[in-house]
Simulated assay, not measured.
Amino acid sequence: MLNTDRPTRASSSDHALLLKVRQRLVTAGYQPGQALPTGLIAHHLQANLPAVKQAIAELARARKVEFRPNGEHGPGYYMPAPHRPNSLARHGVRARYSA
Score class of each variant (00 low, 15 high):
4 T>I: 08
6 R>F: 12
86 N>H: 15
11 S>T: 15
12 S>F: 04
17 L>N: 02
53 K>M: 12
14 D>I: 01
51 A>W: 04
19 L>E: 12
59 L>K: 01
21 V>N: 13
41 I>F: 06
98 S>P: 02
40 L>P: 02
82 P>K: 07
21 V>W: 03
32 P>E: 04
90 R>N: 11
75 P>C: 09
39 G>Y: 01
82 P>G: 09
58 E>A: 12
3 N>H: 02
80 P>D: 01
25 L>K: 14
50 P>G: 08
29 G>F: 00
76 G>C: 06
25 L>C: 14
63 R>Q: 07
52 V>G: 05
47 A>C: 10
23 Q>A: 15
88 L>A: 15
57 A>H: 06
24 R>P: 03
84 R>D: 07
29 G>V: 00
53 K>A: 12
12 S>Q: 06
13 S>F: 04
48 N>H: 06
38 T>F: 03
41 I>K: 10
66 E>S: 04
82 P>L: 08
35 A>C: 13
83 H>E: 13
20 K>T: 07
30 Y>P: 01
49 L>C: 06
24 R>T: 10
99 A>W: 13
36 L>D: 09
5 D>W: 10
98 S>K: 07
8 T>I: 15
12 S>G: 03
42 A>G: 05
78 Y>P: 05
89 A>P: 01
67 F>N: 01
23 Q>D: 15
2 L>H: 05
92 G>V: 08
33 G>D: 11
93 V>I: 10
20 K>C: 08
98 S>G: 09
46 Q>A: 11
6 R>H: 11
90 R>Q: 14
64 K>D: 00
36 L>R: 07
64 K>R: 05
38 T>K: 04
30 Y>W: 01
64 K>T: 02
71 G>S: 01
31 Q>I: 00
38 T>E: 10
56 I>Y: 00
12 S>I: 02
28 A>C: 10
84 R>K: 12
41 I>T: 06
80 P>C: 04
42 A>Y: 06
58 E>H: 07
12 S>L: 03
8 T>F: 07
9 R>N: 09
41 I>Y: 12
76 G>W: 02
53 K>Q: 15
88 L>Q: 15
77 Y>S: 02
29 G>N: 02
49 L>G: 08
23 Q>F: 06
32 P>F: 02
86 N>T: 07
37 P>I: 00
75 P>N: 12
17 L>H: 07
94 R>T: 14
13 S>E: 15
13 S>Q: 15
31 Q>E: 01
76 G>S: 11
40 L>G: 11
33 G>C: 05
98 S>E: 10
6 R>A: 14
91 H>P: 01
62 A>F: 05
3 N>M: 02
68 R>M: 03
21 V>I: 13
74 G>R: 06
65 V>P: 14
89 A>R: 11
76 G>A: 10
72 E>R: 09
58 E>F: 03
96 R>K: 14
32 P>M: 00
24 R>L: 15
8 T>V: 15
73 H>L: 01
74 G>D: 14
55 A>M: 06
92 G>I: 08
95 A>S: 14
1 M>S: 13
25 L>I: 10
97 Y>K: 05
83 H>Y: 14
66 E>L: 06
4 T>K: 11
52 V>C: 06
25 L>W: 02
7 P>A: 15
53 K>T: 10
72 E>V: 09
64 K>Q: 04
53 K>G: 11
73 H>I: 04
39 G>H: 00
92 G>H: 07
34 Q>I: 02
98 S>D: 14
54 Q>L: 07
8 T>Q: 13
91 H>Y: 14
64 K>C: 05
78 Y>H: 03
91 H>I: 07
